[in-house]
Design a protein around this nucleic acid. Structure first.
Lengths: 333, 333
DNA sequence: TTGAAAGCGTTACCAC
DNA sequence: GTGGTAACGCTTTCAA
């Protein structure tokens, strides 16, 4: 049996409530008794029971982070930033991998409610998850990170996906490309949809007609990029450039391109999205749209804590994307 | 105010203890009342308060995982496996990035004790952390993952570092290399030290004299690999091959090699360690020693739970390493 | 099968 | 400045 506040009280010859006061740094304590209590704490190697404390104070100082997969470097980056900031504010974070599986997600949400976490960072939202929020399945403050929910105008932090994708497409157009394909992410995420929008918007702005067979739906992973690129390579009228909805898709696409004997950037220019570490080590180093992952995770926690502690809900926050120019694109004429 | 078990009891016209029994699936309950209680739970959208429950039952169903940095793909892989298995067993996991900083680590340990976590996975141990264990700073079951502590013979899961490094070195020797350098990890980790041992052992076994200036201490990251490789490149008698203590070091080394106008594998053959995803996408794809990260994380949780629930402590477990042959090495004569 | 009551380890309020 | 007491929301033992 672990030592309790009572044991300490007894050892110091005071009442438990007095011990509690010194632990919590209340001022109205004589220096004398504080010393006695502290030495008793030391001697007994006492650690307060957080459960009891939390039950009483209704604070658990814990957040949770729902992401599809921590082994995905993009989400690892978000998690890194989030954990660091949470820790600095005295909060722990529970890691939840959902694999984009509805069941795991809802199991976790129930579990987290039982654990009385103060807030949840949702980096897994699907476009139609409006239901989750509306149905009050989330009973505690949350913030959407990197993926929005249609119709929810608040509490989200994400990159400006439209602008990012526009930037990528515009860059290729500036290089002289006219036949630009897009490998998209899964259509049930706003991230994927908005990146499509940005791509189309740039096309339109520069008077390039949108071609339906120049776009394919991937899954934000290598496999998807490979698969979609394969089918693009079957086209009669091959594109000269590809905008991918994330770096992993680009990796898969490059694989497919090489397999057919083509070269990047000689035959196909490619722009990725995310700027995961891998991007700079690819051959050729991948030109991509950078998302400041750690900062986004950091910001998510800051805004979430504001919501929890000061009841301020942020409007949807858009981070400005940046193009990182490397060597996966070439100029054509 | 959140609804409590009392509210449910009142709504169902029974005593709180009865509600508790149906929630916990006790058998001695009439079907009739069970139904009434369940519908009351549903109607009130009741969620049990886990804090109160845990305070009473002394089970929080929570583990913690201490790692240097989740943004490092190796640790992300471990975490992925651990979280998945923990979740399957009904446990949550608190993520703790320590940046290999003693202070963060000890802060976390205190915090986790307060939170009454059932167990801790330590993937951050330094060789001399024996003190931590001996001093009882960790009051709860733990398991060492991927890094051992000198003198502790139990509760660790790790790759057989000596064998792995031996394998890498032997492979290069088999390719005809005689001048083999080693870029090591930080000397305060057993992982780094054992990989040095394996390297030396292979050299010795094949009658190749160990050369002191063929070994340098890195930090398990790109930068370190770059730095050490730079100084190796200053040598009069250049090696023809390099065994690196992990893949990230290899990446840095390759950078330094290229910068000097040399080629991999033409001028230098390189073998990495870990087999992070990046390794297969490098140019040339990196030959490396594979660590089954997810499985190791999985195993860590399984063994930790055995320790917690059945009080069985595993002896140090060594995972067998495997060489993944790709294209960063060449035969010489 | 169900109710009553005690208690888990704290904190907070009210006395003194 | 300190002690006493109640209460946080649940589980569990004992009775009925």
């Amino acid at each position: 049996m672990r030592t309790t506040i009572k044991d300490v009280a007894k050892a110091a010859g005071v009442h438990p409530s007095t011990v509690s006061r010194v632990i919590n740094g209340k001022t109205c304590i004589s220096e004398e008794t504080a010393k006695r209590v502290n030495s008793a704490i030391e001697k007994l190697d006492y650690t307060p029971n957080g459960l009891a404390r939390s039950l009483k104070t209704k604070k658990v100082q814990t957040l949770a982070m729902l992401i599809p997969d921590i082994a995905n470097p993009f989400f690892a980056g978000l998690a890194r930033g989030a954990e660091e900031t949470a820790n600095r504010h005295g909060y722990s974070v529970i890691l939840c991998n959902t694999d984009d599986c509805r069941e795991k997600e809802s199991n976790y949400l129930r579990l987290l409610a039982e654990k009385c976490v103060e807030g949840v960072i949702l980096a897994t939202a699907k476009i139609r998850d409006k239901s989750i929020v509306e149905l009050g399945r989330i009973e505690c403050p949350y913030i959407l990170l990197s993926r929005n929910i249609k119709g929810v105008q608040e509490n989200s932090i994400s990159i400006d996906d439209i602008a990012g994708s526009y930037l990528a497409t515009e860059y290729l157009i500036g290089l002289g490309h006219q036949k630009i394909a897009h490998i998209a992410g899964p259509h049930n995420t706003t991230a994927a949809l908005d990146r499509i929008k940005g791509y189309k918007k740039a096309l339109q702005h520069y008077g390039i007609p949108f071609q339906k067979d120049y776009i394919g739906e991937g899954d934000f992973r290598n496999k998807g990029g490979y698969r979609v690129m394969r089918s693009i390579l079957e086209l009669d009228n091959l594109p000269t450039a590809i905008v991918t909805a994330n770096d992993l898709l680009a990796v898969g696409a490059i694989e497919a391109i090489r397999e057919k004997g083509y070269d990047v950037p000689l035959d196909f220019s490619i722009v990725g999205f995310d700027d995961i570490e891998l991007a700079s080590y690819l051959t050729p180093p991948l030109t991509t749209i950078r998302q400041p992952m750690a900062e986004m995770g950091h910001l998510a926690v800051v805004k979430l804590l504001e919501r929890i502690e000061k009841h301020i809900s942020p409007a949807n926050i858009l981070i400005k994307p940046e193009l990182v120019e490397r060597n996966s694109c070439r100029e054509i004429n």
